[in-house]
Design a protein around this nucleic acid. Structure first.
Lengths: 254, 254
DNA sequence: CGCTCTATTGATGATTGTCAATAATGGTGG
DNA sequence: CCACCATTATTGACAATCATCAATAGAGCG
């Protein structure tokens, strides 16, 4: 139960320069701003987040932006893996969100305020704007997913996303290790654990993927898998290298 | 059918100074930027949107940020009424969104580029940032709504939202005129028309609201209505006046 | 090897979607 | 002002999907 594993922060916060953070956004911001803090957390641990002036860069692992309803229902709003950027975030009144490590994770937190405390935010430049827009685009797509796709479509889109984001291409196809459990998948996709498991069994039977273990699968034909969902994955690498990080900034010619 | 009513823009675009736009964001931006365009559209018409450098302020009516899947399923991602601000928006590859007038609407479009064309975006200041964050907060809440609330909860939250946003308080309670039809409600809430209609009938029977006509209802006890959903409305005016426009900028003490 | 946690599967009920028919609404023209 | 009409909303019957509760199987770890 993730509710039980409260705040298992391992490794105390270290305040460091941004050379510890290989992500481009971190390099950029640390030229002028601020405090860079590296926290790590085991599975189920909660990371600082939910601040209106903090950018979080995921260095390793998988982090989810989560919320609970009073009766225990959980929704994972967004998943962020290595080099993904979580932009600052002011929730509406009465809602509380936090960053939860869905697998052992390390993040870099950038304080956007020019002083160490309650001052004015730094000026916003094109990069900051770019990441904010990307975040909006992703969660907008997630709204369509939750509002209009059935379970099978959601799961196929999810498996495609995970393959593009975290998989490695092998001669046999895309090999993916899922960094999160069934309950996390369910809470991300707006389903419940058993439904996810049943749909995954159907996906297996339809030979869309091959499971080597509950957390490892192989996608022989990712185009077919993607075709099972009526919306395209936001993470397909071929489509112009507009992926969140490790994309245009790092590899662009120059 | 909204698919049939294509691009019914009435009143040709007028390029005007921002004195036509009473919204605060418009006043602010037009000090330095750009082109302000006022379009109006009848019900079902599509407005220009979906640009990565355009802020749209709704002057009147109700506008929805919409997308269609290939098989005709529609999702309304966000609703914007008078003085609401739609921030610029770069969709992920393969998705297409537009602004659709759900009732006859008038909007003010602000081009954020310093020149009239393809140049750099203007600097982003705290107000721009504020509206962007507000937009993220709203659609994040919508993700929770679509992912974890059942039909009754979604409809009660929606009716509460609409009351706070567009209703007027009378001695008999909050009087609300819905500026959108059942199909639009369904596409916003991730349900279908018949389900919305059925749930509304249940809401009526439970005496949570009283319908004077299909588009007019009265909420005697809005706290009870809100209590039927496990998430608070993002539009409650009392909660610190953090509503989209006319909010913190106008009244904040010094 | 045994234990615990996670994942899968089954049986059943609740919710929602689909198709179809009816009722109500709002606008138009006489 | 009223009758007519097209559109929208409601209701019913039924099917599909998903959630819930319970039991079993499998994986990972000491």
């Amino acid at each position: 139960m993730s509710e039980a594993g409260i705040l298992r922060l391992t490794g105390q916060p270290r305040f460091l320069g941004c050379q510890h953070c290989s992500a481009k956004i971190c390099e950029l911001k640390c030229q002028r701003a601020c405090l860079a803090r590296i926290d790590s957390a085991g599975r189920g641990g909660r990371l600082p987040g939910d601040s209106s002036a903090q950018i979080t860069v995921v260095l390793d692992g998988l982090v989810g932006l989560c919320t609970f309803l009073d009766d225990g229902r959980r929704q994972i709003v967004r998943l962020a893996g290595q080099n993904d950027v979580l932009m600052p975030y002011t929730p509406v009144d009465g809602m509380e969100y936090w960053l939860e490590a869905l697998s052992p994770s390390e993040v870099c937190c950038l304080d956007m305020r020019t002083d160490g405390g309650a001052g004015e935010p730094v000026a916003f430049d094109a990069e900051i704007w770019h990441f904010m827009q990307r975040q909006v685009a992703e969660i907008t797509l997630h709204i369509v997913t939750l509002g209009r796709l059935d379970g099978m479509e959601r799961v196929c889109l999810f498996l495609t996303d995970m393959a593009w984001r975290f998989g490695v291409e092998t001669p046999a196809g895309w090999l993916v290790r899922l960094p999160l459990g069934r309950e996390d998948i369910a809470d991300y996709l707006g389903l419940n654990t058993e439904t996810v498991s049943r749909i995954l069994s159907r996906v297996k039977k339809a030979k869309l993927v091959t499971f080597l273990s509950p957390s490892d699968y192989l996608v022989k034909d990712i185009a077919t898998l993607q075709g099972r969902s009526p919306v395209r994955s936001a993470f397909e690498p071929a489509a112009g290298a507009d992926s969140f990080a490790g994309g245009s900034f790092d590899e662009g010619g120059a």
